[in-house]
Design a protein around this nucleic acid. Structure first.
Lengths: 338, 338
DNA sequence: AATAAAATCCGAAACGTTTCGGATTTTATT
DNA sequence: AATAAAATCCGAAACGTTTCGGATTTTATT
């Protein structure tokens, strides 16, 4: 492996000059630079980023901490699409991405912050962690620049990007109300998700705007899991047969709910309207195709990466960034027949 | 940021001893070790992996080079699932994963090998590159340990894992033949994919085993793209109306083909049987649910990661690893009515 | 030709570890 | 108590860069 020293020797010059030549400094003679570049080329030199990072005290590396990259949750294209957005932006820069493994066994021994500090990442993007995750606190206490996705926290070194969950959920509920539904159930995620709290709020708001009173028993938690949503939908529909429409806080749960309803003999959308949230790839392929609130998951990642890198370059203070959502009307919702 | 020196000073001991204590060497007194560990804890020490990597000349980092992590190809859950498998295995080890960005602008300036050498990754996993990708050659010429997915190359430092594409395609064709079909079309990927060559071979073999002669005009390339498969299916079915079954080299293309056939007025599977390949999450959700050859994409990644790390630890020579596939019969194929 | 200014170059220290080879201290043996 | 053996510790060099401060060389000015 050839180093700067080899080049220096070969070119008859000091390592300082080699370093400065190769890094484009102005105080090196054009001819010298040419010669050095030629030697570097000949010796097939590539700089050792470890050494550089060590002395520069920055690694040009950003950490990616995602949950939901497990075998089970692949079907839910959400995480992946966010990652793809992150990847795309980062690809435009000189940074590389290191994927931190959220394996539980390792997690026990080393905290995330330790991982980040060891690897000397310049910053971190976090996605899919729960509100009660100890890492949330850890990050706030550390001074690692950091951008959260879908968790509204901020400080002088942490920002976040999210979509407008309240508005999205409000639109979902309104859509159902405007179709004439009065008894609208909801299958939410879980307590430890900020988005769930917000979506519940939006749901209530939507009902209120249409003069519908909020019935707590109409709301169940499905933990963002298809099967769990199936179970909760069964319960919900059996105990409250007056319900004619259900808002699900994720598409995967909506798919579970459709299955449940179909199993109970409902025809969809004629007898039961179901609206999802996310607009994952599956949404438009299932039948009936899912009416849903679309989030731009790719942008979520793209903007998160952009914000982080801007922070790292001191071009921006951490801030919040809220993306718009969009109602996509497909086949799983229709006017109430009751 | 506290270093080993701070600890040494605080604990009244040399840096050598701190290093050896923290790394579990035997030649340090139990009491000294305790004291050092306590100081390290108090000072909130975490080792600088950059410095360690520099002197050890290994980074405990493995590079991941995937194409197909773009916005467009997310629907095809293939890449993601492979990545998830890789991630899972790597999570069990002390390695971390760095994602190399295959952005074209960067690509032009730095070759993959340069990226790998700069970042000093210990090894690389490659997925989704084409057979005419210059990097293939680059890798073979370098000495970076490396595992390919779905490209059968090997040397003293490169191995690969793949599925049995010939057998899988043979089973697909046989399945159709056994349902009574005699005119079986195929929509393949493209010339630059090894898997396409193999699947074509398997398709021919399957036909042959059932006494069906191979008709070159029955085979089109759909480039693994849904829309392109749609187009090719239209052409294929219009020019050869005798075709009663089509084997598609990917599920996404099968979905495109189903769309095309439906558009042309075919009822599926009654009038046209379609079988896919991959068994992506979508496959079981579309209607009719897709009969397909399932590959264990997760395992593909998992085994690739395992092989690479075994190579790095000198516990294994690079080798090839071929996984089995499985025919999943769903609703898109049925007996021939002609 | 002497001097000043600009251009070009360099030595040495530093980043935070690991590790070689040997030194010192402690314990066991006679 | 002297000696040998084992246990414990340490100094210094090394990994491959960058960068500070200054030295040397070249060019421009008088």
């Amino acid at each position: 492996m050839t180093t700067i020293k080899h080049i220096a020797k070969q070119a008859g010059v000091s390592v300082t000059t080699v370093s400065r030549a190769l890094n484009g400094y102005s105080d090196v003679n054009a001819k010298t630079r040419k010669r050095i570049e030629k030697v570097a080329e000949e010796l097939n030199y590539s700089p050792n980023s470890l050494a550089r990072s060590l002395v520069r005290n920055q690694s040009e590396t950003i950490g990616l901490l995602v949950s939901g990259f497990t075998k089970e949750s692949i079907k839910d294209g959400f995480t992946v699409e966010v990652m793809s957005g992150i990847n795309s932006y980062v690809a435009e820069t000189e940074y590389d991405l290191v994927l931190f493994n959220t394996d539980s066994s390792k997690q026990r021994k080393k905290t995330y912050t330790q991982l980040c500090k060891e690897r000397r990442v310049d910053g971190v993007i976090l996605q899919g962690i729960k509100t009660d995750d100890p890492y949330l606190e850890e990050v706030m206490e550390s001074d690692i620049p950091c951008v959260f996705i879908d968790i509204p926290v901020s400080s002088d070194h942490v920002g976040f990007v999210s979509t407008d969950n309240i508005e999205g959920a409000r639109v979902a509920a309104s859509h159902l109300a405007e179709l004439g539904h009065r008894n609208i159930g909801m299958i939410n995620g879980h307590e430890q998700a900020f988005v769930s709290k917000e979506r519940l709020q939006g749901y209530k708001l939507g009902l209120q705007q249409h003069g519908i009173t909020y019935v707590p028993e109409y709301v169940k938690d499905g933990s963002f899991i298809e099967q769990e949503a199936y179970n909760q939908a069964i319960v919900l529909l059996q105990t409250h047969p007056e319900i004619s429409a259900v808002f699900c806080a994720s598409d995967l749960m909506a798919i579970g709910a459709i299955d449940a309803a179909t199993h109970l003999g409902y025809r969809i959308p004629e007898e039961l309207s179901i609206i999802g949230y996310d607009d994952i790839p599956l949404a438009s392929y299932v039948s009936p195709a899912l009416t849903t609130i679309a989030q731009n998951k790719y942008d979520l990642g793209y903007y998160a990466a952009r914000m982080l890198i801007n922070i790292l370059k001191n071009q921006q203070k951490p801030e919040k960034c809220i993306l718009k959502t969009e109602l996509k009307i497909r086949q799983s919702t229709s006017t109430s027949i009751r």
